[in-house]
Simulated scan of single mutants.
Amino acid sequence: MNSTSIKHMVVFCLHTGKDTPEAERFLEVSRAELAAIPGVEQFEVFRQVSTKTDYDYGLSMVFADQAAYDAYNAHPVHTTYVANRWVNEVSRFQEIDFMVYR
């Protein structure tokens, strides 16, 4: 990651709970749809193992710069995913975006 890259991360819980077949399907579809959007690099899916937080899952990806991140947010696959899947299946979340500290 360089100084203009953005690491986009989100931790979340699903209405269906943790470690359910529905949760597995959500994670699989998320990976397939979001990782294929142009500009997405280093896409990863995480399962929470710490007892210090009550979020169950996480997604992480890197963008080369602000323009790539903005293009991702406006991409029709992303906007459709958010409207049709994220809003309906995620019960709560926290989103963070980082750039390398110089």
Rank of each mutant, 00 (worst) to 15 (best):
V11W: 09
F12C: 10
L14K: 09
L14S: 04
T16R: 04
T16V: 08
T16D: 09
T16M: 14
T16I: 02
T16L: 03
T16F: 06
G17L: 08
G17E: 05
K18Y: 06
D19C: 13
D19F: 00
E22N: 13
A23T: 03
A23I: 08
E24T: 03
R25Q: 14
R25K: 14
R25M: 12
R25W: 06
R25F: 05
F26P: 04
F26M: 02
L27H: 02
L27Y: 12
E28H: 11
E28M: 07
S30K: 01
S30R: 02
R31F: 13
E33A: 15
L34Y: 09
L34T: 10
L34M: 10
A35F: 08
A35P: 04
A35G: 05
A35K: 11
A36G: 08
A36F: 03
A36S: 15
A36Y: 08
A36E: 00
I37K: 06
I37G: 11
I37R: 05
I37H: 04
I37M: 06
G39F: 11
G39W: 01
V40T: 14
V40K: 09
E41N: 15
E41Q: 14
E41F: 14
Q42A: 15
F43W: 03
E44G: 13
E44H: 09
V45Y: 07
V45G: 07
V45H: 08
F46I: 05
F46G: 12
F46L: 09
R47N: 14
R47V: 14
R47K: 14
Q48I: 03
Q48W: 05
V49N: 02
V49F: 13
V49I: 13
V49A: 09
S50V: 08
S50F: 05
T51Y: 02
T51K: 04
K52H: 10
T53Y: 02
T53Q: 15
T53L: 07
D54V: 15
D54Y: 11
D54H: 07
D54E: 14
D54C: 13
D54W: 06
Y55R: 07
Y55G: 11
Y55H: 13
Y55K: 10
Y57I: 07
Y57N: 08
Y57W: 06
Y57K: 14
G58Q: 00
G58F: 01
L59C: 05
V62L: 12
V62C: 12
F63I: 08
A64R: 10
A64M: 02
A64N: 11
D65G: 08
D65E: 01
Q66S: 07
Q66L: 01
A67V: 01
A67W: 03
A68T: 05
A68E: 00
A68C: 11
A68G: 09
A68N: 02
A71N: 06
A71P: 03
A71I: 02
Y72C: 14
Y72A: 10
Y72D: 03
Y72E: 12
N73K: 12
A74Y: 00
A74C: 03
H75L: 12
H75C: 10
H75S: 05
H75K: 02
P76C: 15
P76F: 03
V77K: 11
H78W: 03
T79P: 01
T80C: 09
T80R: 08
Y81R: 08
Y81I: 11
Y81A: 02
Y81H: 11
V82K: 15
V82P: 04
V82E: 09
V82N: 10
N84P: 01
N84H: 08
R85P: 02
